[in-house]
Structure formats: structure tokens, C-alpha cells
């Protein structure tokens, strides 16, 4: 078997594919965050809770109302999006003129409340959502077994990301949105209903989170903290991509997923070891770096990258200095 730095090539492909799958999750979630930040200047810390709500609504729909997966994929984001609209109308709109910190604190508080309520009602162990019949099973690719459902997740995420990007960057509606970010007063003067646009944008960002939640429901155990486990990583993605940058969040999301996959395969640690272990002094200096990129520290990798990016490009890879 061909090996690259102690990792069989099959295993590497497998890990890259998994990286792509996780990356597309990161992309959908960070896309929602980026849109909200871009237009509302709100750091939406409730994003994880809204992702969880999406998954839970799908489960509730299936268990109590007999709503199947495909309907849930449409209805659940819609329902969660409506809660987002209500939150924007009743709470967030008062904070636009204040510092970012206030929006962050408000949404963080909301996230804690929502998660607490779900935990109280459903417990922490969570519930199981089955993979829809049509997507059950998988395909043997030779180097790995690819579950059909995961392939669907990649396709669905990429389509949603691309459509969102297209609408914002290439369509007339998108030009209003971008104009609203630049100069809301002027846009209002042209007769565009900016407050409504802002409300709907928040609703859409939130719906994206819920959409990712429904996509995640058959993969992960649906539990009240599933969002808070993910949200920190997604924030790191947004920061690396550049706050508010649409393309940045999509590309960074997928890119970081791939990097995480490579780290989890153990290749980076092996590579560093192969080059530096024998070199005196340098070897011991590189040793902690090697640890940071070892598979068991894969949860840290993204944050290490975030720190490096912030040092070199404080506005993020795709961000513009304001």
C-alpha cells in the first residue's frame, strides 16, 4: 500500500472526504453568521442554539406529527426563521447603534435560555433521528465507504451556499443588501424598505442555521448542546475567513474542514516528526507544534490556525479593513 508520511493513501483520501463533509457544515453555518454580521453588525451567538432548534424541530415533527425528513428540511428552517424574525423585531433592532458587544451578549443570553429550556424538557442524552429511507446505505468507493446521506449533505450544502452567494453578490436583490451594508440611509432615501430587509436577512441567516441543523439530525445525536459544541468552531471559521465576507466564509469553512481531516489522519504530526525529530534542539522546539497537530488535538487545530491568521491578517483571509 502506498503511504504518504506513514499514512496509507486510502486513509488520506477517506479523511479528506470526511473533511469535505464537515467543511460543508462549517460553510453553511458560517455563511449564516457572515450574512448576519455583514448586514446587521450583530455577532449572532444564538446561531448554535438555532442550529439545535432546527434539528429538534425536525425530530419533534417526525415523532409527534409524522412530518418526514424532506418536509422537515423545508418547514423547520422556516419555523426557526420566523422565531428569528420575532427576535430581530422585538430585541435586536434596539442594539444596532450600540457596540458589537451588546448584540453578542443578548444573543449569547438567548442561546443559554433556549438550550436550558430544551435541556429541561428533553434531557442531555438527546434523541435519535433516523436517516431517511432513500438515503440509507452507502457506496463503496474502494478507499472508503461513503454513506449516501453524507454525500447528500455535501451536495445540499454546496447548492445552498452557492445560491446564497449568487443572490447576494450577483442579483439585484443582493445589490440592495450590499448597499444596505454600505449606507442604509441613502438606500432608504431611494425608497427601499431597509428595516424590513434587515429583518428578513436575519430571518434567512437563522433559517440557514436551522437548515444545517436538519441536515445534521440524522448524523449526530439530536441533543440540546449539539450547537454549543459546534458554534465556537464556526466562529473561528468566520474570523479566519474575515467577518462578514460571504465567499470567505464558504471557502474557509470547506478549507478548514479539509485541514482538520488531514490533521486527524495523523499526517501532519508524522511529517513534522519525520523532518525534525532527528535534528538536535530544533526537534524539541518543534515537539509542542507536533502535539498541536496530532489527531487527538484536532479540536485545537482550527484555533491555532485562527491565531496565526489573526497575527498575520487581522481582518481575516477575505476580509477588508474598515
Amino acid at each position: 500500500m502506498t503511504e504518504i508520511f506513514g499514512v496509507p493513501i486510502q486513509a488520506l483520501f477517506g479523511q479528506l472526504l470526511i473533511g469535505l463533509i464537515n467543511g460543508s457544515f462549517y460553510a453553511v453555518l458560517s455563511l449564516g453568521l457572515a450574512i448576519i454580521f455583514g448586514l446587521l453588525n450583530i455577532i449572532n451567538f444564538a446561531h448554535g442554539a438555532q442550529y439545535m432548534m432546527g434539528a429538534f424541530l425536525a425530530w419533534i415533527g417526525m415523532t409527534f406529527l409524522g412530518v418526514n425528513y424532506w418536509w422537515a428540511l423545508m418547514l423547520s428552517p422556516l419555523a426557526v426563521g420566523v422565531t428569528g424574525v420575532i427576535i430581530e423585531r422585538t430585541m435586536l433592532r434596539w442594539l444596532y447603534r450600540l457596540d458589537h458587544l451588546y448584540g453578542l451578549l443578548l444573543t449569547f443570553g438567548l442561546a443559554l435560555i433556549v438550550e436550558g429550556l430544551f435541556r429541561y424538557k428533553f434531557g442531555i442524552s438527546g434523541e435519535s433521528y433516523p436517516v431517511p429511507e432513500t438515503l440509507a446505505g452507502g457506496i463503496n468507493l474502494g478507499f472508503m465507504f461513503l454513506p449516501k446521506y453524507r454525500a447528500w449533505v455535501v451536495v445540499a450544502s454546496l447548492v445552498v451556499c452557492f445560491v446564497t452567494w449568487y443572490v447576494i453578490e450577483r442579483s439585484k436583490l443582493g445589490s440592495y443588501l450590499r448597499a444596505g451594508t454600505e449606507n442604509p440611509q441613502l438606500l432608504q432615501a431611494f425608497g427601499v424598505n431597509v428595516p424590513l430587509m434587515i429583518t428578513l436577512t436575519y430571518g434567512y441567516g437563522v433559517a440557514l442555521a436551522a437548515f444545517a441543523g436538519v441536515l445534521a439530525a440524522p448524523i449526530f445525536n439530536v441533543n440540546p448542546v449539539m450547537g454549543s459544541n459546534l458554534i465556537i468552531v464556526v466562529f473561528a471559521v468566520v474570523v479566519i475567513g474575515g467577518m462578514g465576507s460571504i465567499m470567505g466564509s464558504i471557502v474557509t469553512g470547506i478549507g478548514l474542514g479539509l485541514i482538520e481531516g488531514v490533521v486527524k489522519s495523523g499526517m501532519v504530526a508524522n511529517l513534522l516528526g519525520a523532518i525534525f525529530d532527528e535534528v538536535p534542539i530544533v526537534g524539541s522546539i518543534v515537539y509542542p507544534v507536533k502535539l498541536l497537530f496530532s489527531p487527538e488535538a484536532s479540536a485545537v487545530t482550527i484555533f491555532v490556525i485562527m491565531a496565526i491568521v489573526l497575527l498575520l491578517r487581522p481582518a481575516g483571509l477575505f476580509g477588508r479593513e474598515r
Binding site: P8, G14, I18, F145, F220, N229, G261, S265, S298, A299
Partner: peptide, 20 residues
């Protein structure tokens, strides 16, 4: 064996290693 971070969500990478 393979060590995974605690707590974790996605185990697919680790499961692949176990599988191979």
C-alpha cells in the same frame, strides 16, 4: 487505538481508522 478529543461530535475520522 485512536484517541479522540473529549467531548467530540464527529467520529467519522476515527471510525475510518478503526475500520481500516
Amino acid at each position: 487505538r485512536v484517541l479522540h478529543p473529549f467531548p467530540a461530535q464527529d467520529f467519522s475520522s476515527f471510525l475510518l481508522q478503526a475500520q481500516s
